[in-house]
Design a protein around this nucleic acid. Structure first.
Lengths: 226, 226
DNA sequence: AATTGTGAATTCCTTCACAGCC
DNA sequence: GGCTGTGAAGGAATTCACAATT
């Protein structure tokens, strides 16, 4: 049990999110025929500092070669491992409304790594429906048994805000540890459960704020990106 | 022109995003019949420090009353003003795929503040279609004229990654200054244009990472929330 | 007595700058 | 010579703690 690669410790979400971005970039570079890349080369692709990339990677091991940079295939494999993408993840979507359906049909998830395997709803009119993709809408009451049957390990909450907390209770009770919340509400954290928020209203209101101060920025230089 | 309320200056996105969350909470409190709230009362609703809330608000003025807290209606009006929600915003959606359609039909945006008024696509098979909501799918070539006609001030990019950069060019050329990007790609910033990213893959991979380190956290305390 | 607004302290994150290695 | 890995410096965001105010 001698720790070979330091993991878990206290690595920030910011770092993890960037690893995700690096990985995506490595896929592109590989497709372009590149086989090696320097931290500076990666940094140029986004608006990042090369030291930041090196630091991010260094949390997990020494993946580079001094004087040469990083081997793309090797680094890619490391990142896949670190991000837990070396095994598939089955996603259950709560709420078969517009958003839930879009998620179930969305094919933008990296090929094969994340699959939406079931929708859940409480509306009898929706239960039993089957999407073009073959995914079925189940009764929310059956969440626990179906989640276990289909090996669901990630849940996306796409229900109205007022029932989101109750929905979270149900999935946490069923042993789910990873949740992606789309409901416009700040869900109370549960111990041992990771909740990532996708909050469209917050994002839109950030843009709205920007538009309202923009006239005041007038001649001054205006900033951009996230 | 004596600056009555200090705005714009250098306020971080983190602060602006929290204002959005506070505002949502004020709506709820108001609906519950509350008429006044302390920073501590607000802080208890999320996992926040009360000093943070006071600091966030203090950037924009002195809205509270010592000893009493904040008047909910008054603070709400201030936040609405600060976030530019005192006038409506028209959103154009690029890409009439699953995600684009879901956005166009999504009614979760705060009542009336943001309206999706048009979809745009390059696929002749989709152009001309009209959604149940009445929103029409236009030819992307006509973006500039229709955006101006419909007074679109915010664009959501929901096209495949490989054409996202070109799509951004088109909207920026048409004078759009605020963009919500759903494509899994880090768009290059443009001067004077604010781009917010909603990156589902990054969010999912963050969850995947958490699941893969979770077994190692074992008996140790496991953390949560975003 | 209660609660704000805020300087000071702290913690967290990023960038610099360079020793170490290929 | 070029590039990584990293200690040290710098900067940003958060939290503390308390004087000011009602």
């Amino acid at each position: 049990m001698a720790g070979m690669n330091a993991k878990a410790d206290k690595i920030s979400d910011l770092t993890i999110n960037r690893l995700s971005v690096y990985l995506r970039c490595l896929h592109e570079l590989w497709a372009e025929g590149a086989r090696t890349i320097s931290s500076q080369g990666l940094a140029d692709r986004f608006n990042l500092n090369s030291a930041q990339i090196r630091k991010d990677l260094a949390y997990f091991g020494e993946f580079g070669v001094r004087g040469l940079g990083y081997n793309i295939e090797e680094l890619r494999n490391h990142l896949i491992k670190i991000l837990g993408l070396d095994r598939p993840h089955n996603v259950g979507v709560l709420g078969a409304g517009n958003l839930g359906n879009a998620l179930a049909n969305y094919d933008g998830f990296s090929p094969g790594k994340f699959s939406v395997v079931a929708l859940f709803d409480t509306d009898p009119g929706k239960i039993g429906r089957r999407l073009p993709s073959g995914v079925e809408v189940h009764n929310m009451d059956e969440f626990a048994s179906i989640a276990s049957e289909l090996a669901i390990d990630i849940v996306a909450i796409a229900v109205p805000a007022r029932v989101a907390e109750a929905a979270l209770d149900a999935v946490v009770d069923a042993g789910i540890k990873a949740v992606l919340n789309f409901a416009p509400i700040r869900l109370q954290g549960r111990p041992g459960v990771k909740i990532n928020h996708v909050d469209l209203l917050v994002s839109l209101e950030g843009l709205s704020h920007f538009l309202s101060i923009r006239p005041m920025l007038a001649h001054a230089s205006a900033a951009s990106d996230e």
